[in-house]
Design a binder for these strands. Structure first.
Length: 590
RNA sequence: GGGGCCGUAGCUCAAUUGGUUAGAGUACCGGACUGUCGAUCCGGUGGUUGCGGGUUCGAGCCCCGUCGGCCUCGCCA
């Protein structure tokens, strides 16, 4: 070992101990007669002091140290004098009085310093990720991620779950996200797909009798990125046999409680609240509501139907909806210009306009107020439980547009007005998603969750008559406006499974071709089973109160899915392509 | 595929309606300083304003294209 201690552990009780530390020079302060070095490793920072009495060679070496040099220092721990402590450092009551110094590796001047206050742009951070990762902030993110995975593994291990790895090289299946493909060398023209999730494998494990399975699974989806979405990510994947929905919910309730206790040292109240999909869509306009604040969506259809404002009236006549939100005490906070900006914002979510009213004493103030009788104005105020000084926003459109626009507006205002504590975790279940959604473009039903999901028993008759009415035995876990987990009770009967496939427009022949192995497995004694997958990266992000998933991944990709550090993806040698029987045809015919 | 924001010194930013030699802080280099801790003080190096074209007497600023980063809609069973 090149060191006896880390840079984060020396305290007053170590005074007098001879120590050797290794680390990076975080900063230097040269006073000619005395040189201070803040030495950093992932455990913390310790101040090293080089004094005048030292050997002149050591003095000279110390004076030449610059940021990010890697050094080894030996000396003794001394208490800092009265008034010389640094309360900002955990080690700030002591310092190491250096006796010898060796420069393990001189650093080039780094493009930015880990201790920087003004974070450089993300491009530079990603291309020099090894420096960015030296920042205490990112280090503590990855440490928390580690703690979460340990906590998860302990929780499941203590409950007889087995962690079982499933293949990365699998079979491409239709439906779902775009696959990342891997060409086969030995079977020309054939491809593996990287897993979007271990879904089918874990169901096969249930058939095989591994009745409690979990895995920290790497998953891949070739879709466009977002702040909370990376093309490769990790799931806490769980599946259980001989259980129903209730068992899964309770198991995951326990997991959330356990991880919150392990990571935050606090007790999270259980059971986690449960909502139906229909309820959250009505109250929040989204299937992943941020429950840290109110400002729920209110329907004023009845009032709108008879008012003199033709936009509202016609929307109701044509089967649309008029819904709104009440922004408490915001009447004076939003100028006309600010409201215009919000109008553009909801426009990006499909709304053709944004009506607003400022609430005065018992009446409404707005360019469109004149289209509403005093009684109607009172009715609106009453309906939204509004008081003087409140600001009301309304969107009139197809129901789905009012949901999309108002939920986006609600999220934006909630954040901008600071209506919640960003560190709070508000976790809840959303149950009974619809089985299918009608896809306008493709002119067919598509699975809302996935095609292996068990419908509610009482809705099975609607499979043939009214698929849109069929509710799935599915459940999402939402947290702070994010989908943090998603799961369902699975179909364990090949006849039902085939029925679902055919409803999705997958013929019996195609189903056999694509999923024959699964249908077959279901014929050989498949137990009732159910499962769920939690987005690991998102949970880490949520625990940190962060809103970028990249800050909890050691080596993330950019929005174009490239790795600025290594240069991936890149062209490959023509010989590699030949081995794989692949000819490349670039767009534009190059 | 669509919409938006951004790109100026190694880094973070500034630069008046389009107008002189593109500035500041920091980093870096040199000097001063025996207790600092985002050290301080003095001096200095450092620029293809992402790239290519255009408009103009004149472009960091306006226009077109392009590359890259971020946010977002679509997409993400």
């Amino acid at each position: 070992m090149l060191r006896t201690h880390t840079c984060g552990e020396l305290r007053l009780d170590c005074v007098g101990t001879p120590v050797t530390l290794c680390g990076w020079v975080d900063s230097y302060r040269d006073h000619r007669g005395v040189v201070f070095i803040d030495l950093r490793d992932r455990y913390g920072i310790t101040q090293v002091v080089f004094q005048l009495e030292l050997d002149s060679a050591v003095q000279a070496l110390a004076r030449d140290l610059r940021g990010e040099d890697v050094i080894q220092v030996s000396g003794s721990v001394v208490a800092r004098g009265e008034g010389l402590e640094n309360p900002k450092l955990a080690t700030g009551q002591v310092e190491v009085r250096a006796e010898s110094l060796s420069l393990l590796n001189k650093s080039k001047t780094p493009p930015f310093e880990p201790r920087t206050f003004d974070l450089p742009n993300e491009e530079l951070r990603l291309s020099h990720r090894y420096i960015d990762l030296r920042r205490p902030q990112l280090q503590s993110n990855l440490i928390l991620r580690h703690k979460l995975t340990i906590s998860v593994r302990k929780y499941f291990d203590e409950r007889d779950f087995l962690e079982i790895e499933t293949p990365m090289l699998g079979k491409s299946t239709p439906e779902g996200a775009r696959d990342y493909l891997v060409p086969s060398r030995v079977t020309p023209g054939a491809f593996y797909a990287l897993p979007q999730s271990p879904q089918i494998y874990k169901q096969l494990l249930m058939v095989a009798g591994y009745d409690r399975y979990f895995q920290l699974a790497r998953c891949f989806r070739d879709e466009d990125l977002r702040a909370d979405r990376q093309p490769e990510f990790s799931q806490i994947d769980v599946e259980m046999s001989f259980v129903n929905q209730e068992d899964i919910l309770q198991t995951i309730d326990g997991l959330i409680s356990r991880t919150v206790r392990d990571l935050r040292g606090t007790e999270h109240p259980l059971p986690l609240p449960r909502y139906t999909h229909a309820e959250v869509m009505e109250r929040f306009g989204t299937d992943k509501p941020d429950l840290r604040f109110g400002m729920e969506l209110i329907d004023i259809g009845e009032i709108a139907a008879t008012c003199g404002f033709s936009v509202f009236q016609k929307t109701i006549e044509s089967g649309g909806r008029v819904r709104g939100i009440r922004v408490e005490g915001a009447a004076e906070k939003f100028s006309r210009k600010a409201i215009d900006e919000l109008t553009v914002f909801v426009g990006n979510h499909g709304a053709k306009g944004l009506a607003f009213f400022r609430v005065k004493d018992g009446e409404l103030d707005s360019p469109i107020a004149k289209f509403f009788t005093p009684e109607q104005q009172k009715a609106i105020i009453q309906r939204l439980e509004a008081g003087p000084g409140d600001l009301l926003f309304f969107v009139a459109d197809k129901g789905s547009v009012t949901s999309a626009a108002l939920s986006a507006l609600r999220n934006r205002l909630g954040k901008e007005l600071g209506l919640y504590d960003p560190n709070e975790l508000k976790v809840a279940w959303v149950l009974d998603f619809p089985m299918f959604q009608w896809d306008e473009d493709e002119g067919r039903w598509v699975a809302e969750h996935h095609p292996f999901c068990q419908p509610h028993e009482e809705d099975i008759p609607y499979l043939e008559t009214d698929p849109g009415r069929v509710r799935a035995q599915s459940y999402d876990l939402v947290c702070n406006g994010y989908e943090a987990a998603s799961g369902s009770v699975r179909i364990h009967d090949s006849v039902v499974q085939q029925k679902i496939f055919s409803l999705l427009g997958i013929s019996g022949e195609e189903a056999e071709l694509r999923f024959g192995f699964l249908l077959n497995a279901l014929r050989y004694g498949a137990p009732p089973h159910a499962g769920i997958a939690l987005g690991l990266d998102r949970w880490v992000m949520l625990f940190l109160g962060n809103d970028s998933i990249r800050d909890v991944i050691a080596f993330p990709k950019t929005q174009k899915a490239s790795d600025l550090l290594t240069g991936a993806p890149s062209e490959v040698d023509s010989r590699q392509l030949r081995d794989l029987h692949i000819r490349v045809e670039l767009p534009g015919g190059k």
